[in-house]
Design a protein around this nucleic acid. Structure first.
Lengths: 192, 192
DNA sequence: AATACATTATAACCTGGTCATAATACAATG
DNA sequence: CATTGTATTATGACCAGGTTATAATGTATT
């Protein structure tokens, strides 16, 4: 097989990119893929400081094992601290690196809304709930590491519609407000 | 070292639990941990159908590699399809299982807002941008598997404030609308 | 032709296993 | 008591996917 690349630097570049995409290939497979001997691949790896497959595997696996939270976050945004069904609820969310804009370390707005919205949905005790509309206002940016306490209160119920008001604070300062209108389809709720 | 367990079944039970928690230990480490010979560990694994470390590693790693979307989702919600800075942008988001309420298979409202909000932020070409307020309206629930196309348009610019309007559709039907007011702090933007 | 550098080959060794076979321990049973 | 059965341990040959060191080839360049 003819080498796919003339010039070592080009091969090195390609090698790094390729391994980024396919971290689990062996030197043997790489050698065949690049039309070059296994010895060369090994040398290249050594020069570029790329560890063997098994270590690459280990890194990826351990990384994945470290933070299963990254996936959990999808469920309910924020931790429910208190809940009085159809009346009020409180949830707490601490801003982590995942949630901020890199440059400014400011939390992306939709995390605040996500916390408020999932809290509002939790407060309403019904089988089927969805968000109808909302009016939201960000009072000041929230930074990495800050702990947001959101309090939701049911303000009004009209037919299949519930108005929930959410105030989110960092310490004593209000950073976010939302009025959320939820649609409800459930007998229990109507009976109340 | 004395065996930690009398009775093979107990050891097997413990072994399975232990490996659930620590999938990356070698037979050698296991042998020491359980006070039993390596040969025994190998036999146990064979009986229980537990593969060797390297294969366990491979499973975990590949699993993690399969769905990087779960992690990326944090970054920008939805895939950017088109972008004219300071004018408009389009992003596409397909509703996956992660995003729906279990009972109803309806997408949680904040995913729609997250898509709209991160699109709006992307459209505004500035170093520092955050959401000031928003008015949102859900027209109909969106279901598992549906593909949401969001289009954002910059409607007005006043000083450090930009008003962006977002319409999200499934096929030709509008399912969500938002007016988002963003705060901007950037020279470039002011000059424009 | 001589030099430099890239590439390849070769051999010895390592880890974390596999598989097959055999030796040992120990308890229970006839 | 000797025997049987089962669990445990040991032994040796082999494998994949490497490591490290050393030497032998290309190939280009001056």
């Amino acid at each position: 097989m003819k080498p796919k690349f003339s010039g070592r630097t080009k091969r090195h570049q390609y090698l790094e990119e390729y391994l980024e995409m396919h971290p689990f290939v062996t030197d043997d497979e790489l050698a065949r893929h690049l039309g070059v001997s296994v010895a060369t691949i090994r040398l290249d790896r050594q020069i570029l400081g790329i560890p063997e497959v098994r270590k690459r595997l280990r890194f990826v696996a351990q990384d994945a094992f470290q933070k299963p939270t990254a996936l959990d976050t999808h469920e309910v945004v924020g931790e429910l601290m208190d809940l009085e069904l159809n009346k009020s609820g409180i949830s707490v969310l601490t801003i982590t690196e995942d949630m901020v804009l890199e440059k400014t370390q400011v939390a992306r707005g939709h995390y605040l809304f996500a916390q408020a919205n999932s809290l509002a949905v939790s407060v309403v005790d019904a089988q089927v709930v969805w968000t109808g509309s909302a009016r939201i206002r960000y009072k000041r940016p929230v930074y990495l590491g800050e702990k947001i306490v959101a309090k939701a209160t049911v303000k009004a119920e009209r037919g299949t519609t519930v108005l929930v008001s959410v105030h989110s604070k960092v310490d004593l300062e209000v950073v976010f407000k939302a009025q959320i209108v939820l649609s409800v389809q459930d007998q229990k709720f109507k009976r109340d």
